[in-house]
C-alpha cells in the first residue's frame, strides 16, 4: 500500500518535471539596454524554435565591456555601438570574425504627454528639461547631440540637458515627466510598428551618424552550440521582422 503510494508520487513528480521546458544548452547574453524589449521577444522565440535558452542581462554597453574584460561570464555581447565589440575583438576577448551589425537604431524625440509636437517644443525652448543619454557613454546620446547641433540648438538648450547613464534611464526621466521631452530610442516607445504612448518626433536619419549596433561572440561562448545558434538566429528574416516592428532596421 505504502509502496504503491510512493510509486504514484514519484510518477507524479517526474511527470511535472517533464512538463517543464527542457533546454538543450544555455547561453549568457549581455544586451544593451535599448534592445531590451525586442530581445525578450527574440529570446522567447529562440527558445521555442531551437530548445536553447538565452539568459539575458540588460545594462549599459560600457559597463558590460568593463565586466567582460574582467572575466564576466557572458558568451554573447549585443552592444549599443560598433566600437566596443571591435575593441573586444582586438583584445582577443571576442572571437575574431564573429562580429556583425544586428540592428541599426532610430532616434526619437519623445514626450510622455500626448498631443504635443516635440519638434516645435524643442525649437521654442518652452520646456523645463530635455533628457538625453550621456553622449560620452551612449551612442544614442551622441546622436542626440549631433541632432541638436544640426538644428543649431546645442548651445541654446545645454543648460536644460539632463543626462541618463544609459538610454533606459533617459526614457525614465521623460516618462515620469521630470523632463518634458527626451531623446530616446524609437524601440522604447514603439510596439508592433506604432508609437504606444505620448508624442514622438522621429529624427530624420540624416541628422545623426547611423547608430550601428554590433553583436559579437565572446571567447567564453566559443564551442557553445546555443551561442552559435543565437548569433545565427539574430541574422534570420524572422528576427528582422521583430526588430522592424520595434523601429530598428538592418542598416
Amino acid at each position: 500500500m505504502l509502496l504503491t503510494r510512493l510509486k504514484q508520487t514519484l510518477i507524479a513528480i517526474s511527470a511535472t518535471l517533464m512538463a517543464l521546458p527542457l533546454y538543450a544548452d544555455e547561453v549568457m547574453v549581455a544586451v544593451a539596454s535599448n534592445f531590451t524589449a525586442p530581445m525578450q521577444e527574440i529570446a522567447a522565440a529562440f527558445a521555442q524554435k531551437t530548445g536553447h535558452k538565452a539568459t539575458l542581462s540588460f545594462g549599459s554597453s560600457g559597463k558590460f565591456l568593463a565586466q567582460i574584460q574582467n572575466g564576466a561570464p557572458f558568451e554573447v555581447f549585443l552592444s549599443a555601438d560598433q566600437a566596443k565589440p571591435v575593441k573586444l575583438e582586438q583584445a582577443g576577448t571576442a572571437v575574431a570574425g564573429s562580429r556583425f551589425t544586428y540592428a541599426q537604431g532610430t532616434l526619437a524625440l519623445w514626450s510622455a504627454s500626448a498631443g504635443l509636437d516635440p519638434q516645435a517644443l524643442l525649437q521654442s525652448g518652452d520646456f523645463n528639461k530635455v533628457a538625453l543619454a550621456n553622449p560620452k557613454l551612449a551612442p544614442y546620446g551622441a546622436a542626440a547631440v549631433q541632432t541638436l547641433e544640426k538644428l543649431g540648438l546645442a548651445e541654446k538648450t545645454r543648460s536644460h540637458w539632463v543626462m541618463g547613464e544609459n538610454i533606459s534611464q533617459t526614457w525614465q526621466f521623460a516618462s515620469t515627466g521630470n523632463a518634458k521631452i527626451g531623446f530616446v530610442a524609437l524601440s522604447q516607445i514603439m510596439k508592433n510598428g506604432a508609437v504606444t504612448s505620448g508624442s514622438a518626433w522621429l529624427i530624420p536619419a540624416t541628422y545623426y551618424q547611423p547608430i550601428r549596433q554590433d553583436a559579437v561572440l565572446l571567447k567564453k561562448g566559443e564551442g557553445n552550440a546555443a551561442a552559435a545558434a543565437l548569433l545565427e538566429y539574430l541574422q534570420s528574416d524572422e528576427v528582422n521582422a521583430v526588430i522592424t516592428r520595434y523601429g530598428y532596421s538592418r542598416g
Binding site: 549599459s60 560600457g62 559597463k63 568593463a66 550621456n134 560620452k136 547613464e165
Partner: peptide
C-alpha cells in the same frame, strides 16, 4: 567616477 569607468 562612474562616468570615467563607463567611458573606459
Amino acid at each position: 567616477i562612474y562616468d570615467h569607468v563607463e567611458a573606459l
